[in-house]
């Protein structure tokens, strides 16, 4: 499965089970995110630790996923590998999302 979700307390954790979020999967990513997060907790953490490559289409799909969560819900990002981290910083999207080194850090609120 491309995405899989688990619930921990009042948080929904969505893991990306793929090495690339690029133009070829951007639409699928957005649609699967809608399915995985529908009617779930307000806080969603996206586990990106398996993702080695993301392009601007993939980044756009993450932004779209956050917007489709709607008012009062939040999307945080965890487990960024070096290139994913770089794309977020170069586009200044690191100022939009809260970034955590890992899911465990995200659960206890340790930003990094």
């Amino acid at each position: 499965m491309f995405l899989s979700s688990t619930q921990r307390g009042d948080t929904c954790i969505v893991a990306v089970n793929a090495e690339r979020i690029d133009a070829a999967v951007a639409i699928k990513f957005k649609e699967d995110m809608r399915t995985e997060t529908a009617n779930g907790p307000d806080r969603v953490i996206l586990d990106l630790s398996a993702v080695k490559f993301i392009d601007s289409s993939g980044l756009g799909a993450i932004v779209a996923s956050m917007k489709q969560l709607g008012e009062g819900r939040k999307l945080d990002l965890a487990g960024l590998t070096p290139l994913v981290d770089k794309v977020l910083r170069l586009t200044r999207m690191d100022t939009v999302f809260t970034l955590f080194p890992s899911i465990d850090d995200a659960m206890i609120g340790l930003e990094g």
């Binding site: 601007s56 289409s57 980044l59 756009g60 932004v63 779209a64 917007k67 170069l90 939009v96």
Partner: peptide, 23 residues
């Protein structure tokens, strides 16, 4: 250049040339 201040207005594209010039 993008305005990133309003959550509902965030851009979902238009990052490509900024990345190419930066990299």
């Amino acid at each position: 250049t993008h305005d990133l201040s309003g959550a509902s207005e965030l851009p979902e594209g238009g990052f490509g040339w900024g990345l190419i010039h930066a990299l």
